[in-house]
Design a protein around this nucleic acid. Structure first.
Length: 885
RNA sequence: GGGCUGGUAGCUUAGCUGGUAGAGCGCCUCGUUUACACCGAGGAGGUCGAAGGUUCGAGUCCUUUCCGGCCCACCA
C-alpha cells in the first residue's frame, strides 16, 4: 500500500495544481494549422454583473464536456471565451453600488466619469469571472478572452450598424415603446415580462358636454383619464349610436372630448366604451392617430404625474390611481368598481413597472431577416434539441416586430450617428483607421454646412452586440483565417429563456452579415432551481454559490452532479444532496485507484493486456466496458444518461463485482496476479479517458500514474483518443452466464442476511443436481458468498435453507443455526411471489386471444417462463414439506 | 385567448417502435473482511394523476378530464 496516500480524495490540491498546469501548457489555444474537422463552441458570454451563478456552471460545464469529448474524438475543438458588458443589467448593478456607497445617482456623474467607473468595474468583475472559469476546469483559453465592448467587437458593431444603415434596414422614428421608469430607458418588446395582478375595473361616467347622461367607460387605469382625449365605441354598437360625434366633458379636468367610432373596440368588454389616452396606451395611440385626437402626456419618464391638475402633480402612478378613483367617487362619477385580473408589464431587469411611452427611438426592420432565418431552420441548417423549441422559434419569427435598439443608458455601444443642431440633418459617424476603435464627427453638416454637430446620446441594446457574437468573436468583419476556420460553429449551448432575445437574433444576424447560419445545432438546457423547484434569486435567499461548492466538494463533483441531472431543455432541481453523491463518486474512483496502486507496488514495466481472457468475469467486464463506450448519449445531448451509465459501470460493475472477484487472484501472486492486474489497470485507465470530459481533474491526476503501466505515452488526457477499450468478441452466453452466477451469489447472501450469519462464518453450499457450468465457476460463489465449498450431487442436507433458480437447487446446511419457523416463513414468501407470477403468466396463456394473436416467440417465451416457475414452485413446496419433518 | 411542457416508490427521476415497472437519495436490518463508513451486504416501499376507448395485452397508442410549470398575445 502506498503509505502516504490519504484515505479520502483531496480535491483542492489536485484541482489547483492541474488548472494552472493546463493554462500554462496552453492546452486550450486555438489551432489554425490543424487539418482536423473544426468543432467550435462560442461561450454565451456572461454579463459582468458579478460572480457566476450555478446556471452558468451548468451550461458551461456542458460545453466543456462537448469541447473535450470532440477533441478526444479527433476534432479540432475550440471554445471561444468571452464576457458581455451587459448593458442595463450592469449599469443597474453599478448604480445600486454607487447609491449604497456614496448616495449618488447617475445624474451626479458626467458621462465620461460614469464610463470610467464602469470600465474599472469591468476589470474587477472580469477577473472574478476568469478566476471562476479556471476553477470550474473549463477548457477556455484565458489568454484570449473577448469582451463585447473591446476594440475588435466595437468595430464589428459599427460595421454591422453601417451595413444596416446603408441597406436602409435601420430607421429612427417616434413610436410607442416600452419604457422602464426605473432604468429610465426604452426596452424592446421581448424585454418586457408580464405579471398577473389582482386589479380593479373602474366604471366611470363621462357626462355629455351639457351635463346630461353621457357614457360610462371601464378602465383599469383611472389615473390616465387625465390624459384622455376621446372615448371610442364600436361603430355598430346600438347602445351608443346616438352619441357618436357628440362631445363629453371629462370629469376632474373638464376637458371637452369627442366620442368616436372605431372597429377595434370590443363591444363585449366592460361597457363597450373605451376611454382613449393616446399618450399612455398602445391601442389608444393607434385609435387616436386614426381619429386625429390630440396627445396629452401626464406621466413623466420617471413614472410621475405631470401636466395635470395641481393636486396630482408629482404623484407616482400608483398613488395617482388611488387618488383619482377617490375623487371620482366623491364627485359621483364612479358608478361601479369590479375586481379584475390583468397583467402588468414589468422590466426584465429590475421588475419595476413599464409604461407605454411615446418617444424617438432607433429600430431595425427584421422582416426579411426573419424570413431568411425561417428558411434556414426549415431547411435543417440549424437543428434544435429538444426539437419543440424549433416550432416556438418559427412561430416567433413569423410574428416578429421591428427591433427597438436604442437605450437611454450610458453603458454600451454609443449609437454611431451624428445630428446637426441647425438643420436636423443626421448621418453616420466615421470609424477612425487604426487598431483602437474610435468614431469621429464629420467636419461639417453635409446639408447646411453647420459645424454644430453632436453624436447621438443613446447606446445600442446590449443584445445587438450579442447577436453579432458568433461573428465578432472570430474577428469579423475581417476575413481572417480564424473566421473561415471556426465559423460557423458547431453547437450553441444555452438556456431556453434567451432563445428569442439571443439565439434567434444570432441566426438572423449570422445569415445577414456572415452569409451562413452561426451554428449548426442549438442545444438548450433548463434552469437550475432550488431543491423545491423554485427559481433561485437573491431576494429568496436560495442561490447557491458555485465557488463555495467547489471549495467544499471539488469542481469534478459540482460538474458531475449537474451533468447527472442534465437532460435537454429540462429544469434541474438542485440541492446539496446531489453534490454529496457526486463527491462520493470521486472518492470511489480515487479509492479504486488506491487499491490498484497498492497491488502495483513492486510491479516493474508495462502490463500486457492478455490476448484471450480465460475467466468468465474477465470476459464479462470487458463486455460491460465496451457497452459504455458507444452509447451516443453525448451526441444526443443526453448528459444525464451518459453520466449515469459511467457511474453505474464503475461503481457497480467494476468495483462491486470485478474488483471483488479479482481479489483472490491478486492475493495468489505470480502470473495470476499479473494477468488480472493488467485487465484491471487497462480498463481503469481507459475508463479515465472516457470520463475525462465530465470529470477532468481527478481523471487527469490518476491517469498520470497509470499511463506508465499501459503502452500509452504519458500526456494530457485531452490529447488522447477515446475508443472502445478492447474490441474483443465476447461469447454471447458470457453475460447471461455471469448474470446467473451473480444471481446465485445474491440469493445465498440473502439467506445469510436473513439468518444473521456473520460475514466471517464460512458455510457450505450443496447443489444436488450436477451442473458443469457452475462447477467450473464455483470459485466465484465461494469467494463472494462466503462459501467454504460448493458441493455437487448427493442428497439434500437436513436442516438447511434452500433456494431455487430455474433447475438449480441450492441448499445451505445450517445445522444448529437454522430457525425452522423463519425458514418456513422465508420459503413461503418466496413461494407466494412465484405463484403470483405463475398466475399472471398462466392467465395470459390460457387466454385464447393471446395464443392466437400474439407473436409465436412471445407465446413460446411465456410458456418457458411458466414451466420454469412451475418447477421452482414444486421445489419450494418440497423444501417446505421436508421442514415439517 | 393560443401554444408548449410535466404528473411513475417519501424525494429526484429512467422507461425506445405496447408484452409481468428500473435507478440514485432517503428509510429499515446486519457488518470496523487487508481500496473506500464519502464503505459493503441484504430488505421494505409503486393499482405508473383520473375516467373512458383501441388491443389477446397499455406507464407506453387515442379521447376526455383534473392538477402543476412555462411561453406567446395591444382587450381597455
Amino acid at each position: 500500500m502506498k503509505k502516504n496516500l490519504p484515505k479520502a480524495y483531496e480535491h483542492k490540491k489536485v484541482e489547483e495544481k492541474l488548472s494552472q498546469k493546463w493554462q500554462s501548457a496552453k492546452l486550450f489555444k486555438q489551432d489554425l494549422s490543424s487539418k482536423a474537422k473544426p468543432f467550435t463552441i462560442l461561450i454565451p458570454p456572461p454579463n459582468i454583473t458579478g460572480a457566476l451563478h450555478i446556471g452558468h456552471a451548468l451550461t458551461n460545464t456542458i460545453q466543456d464536456v462537448l469541447i473535450r469529448y470532440n477533441k478526444m474524438q479527433g476534432k479540432n475543438s475550440y471554445w471561444v471565451a468571452g464576457t458581455d458588458h451587459g448593458g442595463i443589467a450592469t449599469q443597474n448593478v453599478i448604480e445600486k453600488k454607487l447609491f449604497a456607497e456614496q448616495k449618488k445617482t447617475r445624474a451626479d456623474f458626467s458621462r465620461d466619469k460614469f464610463l470610467d467607473i464602469l470600465w474599472d468595474w469591468y476589470q474587477e468583475c472580469g477577473d472574478t469571472i476568469l478566476y471562476q472559469f479556471e476553477k470550474m476546469g473549463w477548457s477556455l483559453d484565458l489568454d484570449n478572452v473577448r469582451f463585447t465592448m473591446d476594440d475588435t467587437r466595437a468595430k464589428a458593431v459599427y460595421t454591422a450598424f453601417e451595413k444596416l444603415w446603408k441597406d436602409k434596414k435601420i430607421y429612427r422614428g417616434k413610436r410607442m415603446i416600452n419604457w422602464c421608469c426605473r432604468c429610465h430607458t426604452a426596452l424592446s418588446d421581448i424585454e418586457v415580462e408580464y405579471e398577473a395582478q389582482n386589479g380593479k375595473l373602474w366604471h366611470i361616467h363621462y357626462p355629455l358636454e351639457n351635463g346630461k347622461q353621457g357614457i360610462v367607460i371601464a378602465t383599469t387605469r383611472p389615473e390616465t383619464m387625465l390624459a384622455d382625449t376621446g372615448v371610442a365605441v364600436h361603430p355598430k354598437d346600438e347602445r351608443y349610436q346616438h352619441l357618436i360625434g357628440e362631445n363629453l366633458k371629462l370629469p376632474l379636468t373638464n376637458r371637452i372630448i369627442p366620442v368616436v367610432a372605431d372597429k377595434e373596440v370590443d363591444k363585449e368588454f366592460g361597457t363597450g366604451a373605451v376611454k382613449i389616452t393616446p399618450a399612455h396606451d398602445l391601442l389608444d395611440y393607434e385609435i387616436g392617430q386614426r381619429h386625429k385626437l390630440p396627445i396629452i402626456t401626464v406621466i413623466s419618464e420617471h413614472g410621475k404625474m405631470i401636466d395635470c391638475p395641481e393636486k396630482y402633480i408629482g404623484m407616482s402612478v400608483q398613488k395617482a390611481r388611488a387618488e383619482v378613483a377617490k375623487d371620482l367617487e366623491e364627485k359621483g362619477f364612479l358608478t361601479k368598481t369590479d375586481k379584475y385580473k390583468n397583467n402588468v408589464s414589468t422590466c426584465y431587469r429590475c421588475h419595476n413597472h413599464i409604461e407605454p411611452y411615446l418617444s424617438e427611438q432607433w429600430f431595425v426592420d427584421m422582416k426579411d431577416m426573419a424570413k431568411k432565418a425561417t428558411k434556414a431552420i426549415n431547411d435543417g441548417k440549424v437543428t434544435y434539441t429538444p426539437e419543440t423549441w424549433k416550432n416556438q422559434t418559427l412561430n416567433w419569427l413569423e410574428n416578429i416586430q421591428d427591433w427597438c435598439i436604442s437605450r437611454q443608458i450610458i453603458w454600451g455601444h454609443r449609437i454611431p450617428v451624428w445630428y446637426c443642431k441647425d438643420c436636423g440633418e443626421k448621418g453616420l459617424m466615421k470609424m477612425d483607421k487604426g487598431k483602437k476603435f474610435a468614431l469621429s464627427l464629420p467636419a461639417k453638416c453635409g446639408k447646411c454646412g453647420s459645424k454644430n454637430l453632436y453624436q447621438d446620446e443613446d447606446v445600442l441594446d446590449t443584445w445587438f452586440s450579442s447577436a453579432l457574437w458568433p461573428l465578432s468573436t472570430l474577428g469579423w468583419p475581417q476575413r481572417s483565417k480564424e473566421l473561415s476556420t471556426f465559423y460557423p460553429s458547431a453547437v450553441m449551448q444555452t438556456g431556453y429563456e434567451i432563445i428569442y432575445l439571443w439565439v434567434a437574433r444570432m441566426i438572423m444576424f449570422g445569415l445577414y452579415f456572415g452569409g451562413e447560419v452561426p451554428f449548426k445545432q442549438v442545444s438548450l438546457n433548463g434552469i437550475v432551481r432550488d431543491k423545491t423547484g423554485k427559481k433561485m434569486s437573491k431576494s429568496l435567499g436560495n442561490v447557491v454559490d458555485p465557488l463555495g461548492l467547489i471549495d467544499k466538494y471539488g469542481a469534478d463533483a459540482v460538474r458531475f452532479s449537474l451533468l447527472m441531472q442534465a437532460s435537454p431543455g429540462k429544469d434541474i432541481p438542485y440541492g446539496e444532496g446531489s453534490i454529496v453523491g457526486a463527491r462520493n463518486f470521486t472518492n470511489k474512483i480515487y479509492n479504486a485507484a488506491r487499491f490498484l496502486m497498492m497491488h502495483l507496488e513492486g510491479v516493474e514495466g508495462k502490463l500486457e493486456m492478455p490476448k484471450k481472457f480465460k475467466e468468465l468475469s474477465d470476459n464479462w467486464i470487458i463486455n460491460e466496458f465496451n457497452k459504455i463506450t458507444d452509447t451516443g448519449f453525448l451526441e444526443k445531448f443526453e448528459f444525464g444518461k451518459q453520466a449515469e451509465s459511467f457511474y453505474h459501470f464503475f461503481w457497480s460493475n467494476y468495483c462491486d463485482w470485478y474488483i471483488e472477484l479479482a481479489k483472490p487472484r491478486l492475493a495468489q501472486g505470480g502470473e495470476s496476479k499479473k494477468e488480472v492486474l493488467a485487465i484491471l489497470v487497462h480498463i481503469f485507465y481507459d475508463y479515465l479517458k472516457l470520463l475525462h470530459p465530465l470529470m477532468p481533474f481527478i481523471t487527469e491526476e490518476l491517469a498520470e500514474y497509470f499511463a506508465k503501466y499501459t503502452s500509452d505515452n504519458p500526456d494530457f488526457l485531452i490529447h488522447k483518443t477515446i475508443l472502445a477499450s478492447q474490441k474483443i468478441t465476447i461469447d454471447a452466453n458470457t453475460v447471461k452466464n455471469f448474470k446467473l452466477i451473480q444471481e446465485i451469489i445474491t440469493k445465498i447472501r440473502t439467506i445469510r442476511s436473513q439468518f444473521s450469519i456473520a460475514p466471517k462464518v464460512k458455510l457450505d453450499a450443496v447443489i444436488t443436481n450436477e451442473n458443469k457450468f457452475i462447477s467450473s465457476n464455483k470459485h466465484y460463489i465461494e469467494d463472494l458468498a462466503g462459501i467454504e465449498n460448493v458441493v455437487f450431487g448427493g442428497d439434500k442436507p437436513t436442516q438447511s435453507a434452500m433456494t431455487v433458480i430455474k433447475d438449480i437447487k441450492i441448499f445451505i446446511p445450517l445445522e444448529g443455526v437454522i430457525d425452522i419457523s423463519k425458514e418456513n416463513e422465508r420459503l413461503k414468501k418466496e413461494q407466494d411471489k412465484k405463484v403470483k407470477d405463475f398466475e399472471t403468466y398462466n392467465a395470459r396463456l390460457s387466454n385464447k386471444g393471446f395464443t392466437d394473436k400474439a407473436p409465436k416467440e412471445k407465446v413460446e417465451e411465456f410458456k418457458k417462463i411458466v414451466s420454469t416457475l412451475k418447477e421452482e414452485i414444486l421445489e419450494i413446496k418440497d423444501a417446505l414439506k421436508s421442514l415439517e419433518k
